[in-house]
Every structure is written in C-alpha cells, then in structure tokens.
C-alpha cells in the first residue's frame, strides 16, 4: 500500500499519538475534523477515544457521509479501540443511535473487558510479527465473531475465560481492540502500511 495522504480522524481521542507514530514512519498525516480536511486523503486512521462521542461528532461535523464514501471506495483504514467499533459492521452494547461504517465484517462488543479497573497491558502473539507486541487495552472492546473474509491476527482471553479476537484484518482494513499508539512499537502501523 502506498497512500498519498493519510488522514487521522481528530474529532476526539488519541489522534496525536497516531500522527506521531506515522510521522516516525516517514508519513505526513493530516488531522481530520471537518469535511474539507479530507481533500486528497486516501487512507484513514480512526483513533481510540469514546465511540459514542465520535459517532455524534461525525454527524454534527458533516463528516459521516464523506468518510463513509471514502471507505466504501476501498480506502485503507486502521481503527483502534473506538476506531475498531466505528469500522465494524455490528456493535453490541453500544447506544441505539450509534452509527458505524461497516468497513469490516465483524461483530464487536463495546467495553467487553469491563470498566477501567479491568484495563490491562499484555504481551500478545501477533500473526506476522516475530516477537510479542505489548498491547494496552483501555476499557476495551473485543470481537464476538468475524465474517469469512476476515483474518484474525491476535486473540486475548476475555473476562468470560474464552479467547476473543482483538486484532483483525480484511484486505487493507485493520482493526485492533488495543492501542498500539500508546507504545513506542510501530510494527502494527507498519503492518497496515505494508
């Protein structure tokens, strides 16, 4: 993948951290908060934050439809935590009015690991990486089920004792339940850009 210009949705949440990682990788990402910021953007990162807040702000800022259009045209996308929820085809335990882009065929459960005290970091084995990735989960979602075209790259044990997908990819759309932007490890961004 060779994007001309990566937009990082900056309505709310840890957008700067994603831009910092991408800059370290030689990209020149732009902050997207209004429709005019999408000019020339051909790949999109949706950061962590509160998915309900972002969903509301996507509507009020007039960004929902143009972003949906960009994604429907097949633009590469990387969503982390709230970004994963916004890219998913189905959201459980969300708000009834919460909208998502259906860019990747999976069902995600919001706040699946519990409240903040259940937030954690752990070494994850990731398909395609030689050594574990230190993954930071903050009030994180997990994936309940995936469609046929979706590859599961990493899983973690949920509070129910079962293993759940937390890193998935379908074509050039990648989603993680955790926050690679909160560590110095840029390998997942590289994997997405590869």
């Amino acid at each position: 993948m060779n994007p001309r210009k990566i937009g990082v949705l900056g309505l709310q949440g840890a957008a700067r951290e994603h831009r910092d990682v991408l800059e370290r990788l030689g990209q020149t990402p732009v902050d997207v908060r209004r429709p005019e910021h999408l000019f020339g953007v051909d790949a999109l990162v949706i950061p962590g934050g509160e998915s309900t807040t972002m969903s509301m702000l996507l509507e009020s800022s007039g960004l929902f439809d143009p972003v949906a259009g960009l994604l429907a045209d097949g633009a590469p996308a990387f969503g982390t935590c709230a970004g994963m929820i916004l890219l998913a085809s189905e959201v459980m335990d969300g708000r009834p009015d919460q909208r998502s882009f259906s860019s990747i065929d999976l069902r995600v459960r919001r706040n699946a690991f519990g409240r903040q005290l259940a937030s954690f970091e752990a070494d994850l084995e990731v398909e395609g990486l030689d050594t574990p990735f230190r993954a930071v989960f903050i009030r994180a979602p997990y994936v309940e089920s995936v469609g046929d075209a979706v590859e599961v790259l990493a899983s973690a044990q949920g509070p129910d004792g079962e293993s759940h997908a937390v890193l998935c990819r379908a074509g050039q759309v990648m989603v993680s339940a955790f926050h690679p932007e909160l560590t110095d490890d840029s390998r997942l961004h590289q994997l997405w850009l590869a």
Binding site: E17, E50, S119, V136, F137, I138
Partner: peptide, 19 residues
C-alpha cells in the same frame, strides 16, 4: 497481563482528550 500500570491508568486520560 498487568492491570493498574501507569500506562494503563494514563491511557484512559489519553482517550478522553478533545472531549
């Protein structure tokens, strides 16, 4: 797996930014 680390505690503050 570790809960309550500084990175995990600070991480939620990062997610609230811009809000």
């Amino acid at each position: 797996a570790a809960t309550g680390t500084y990175r995990v505690k600070r991480g939620l503050a990062d997610m609230l930014k811009g809000g």
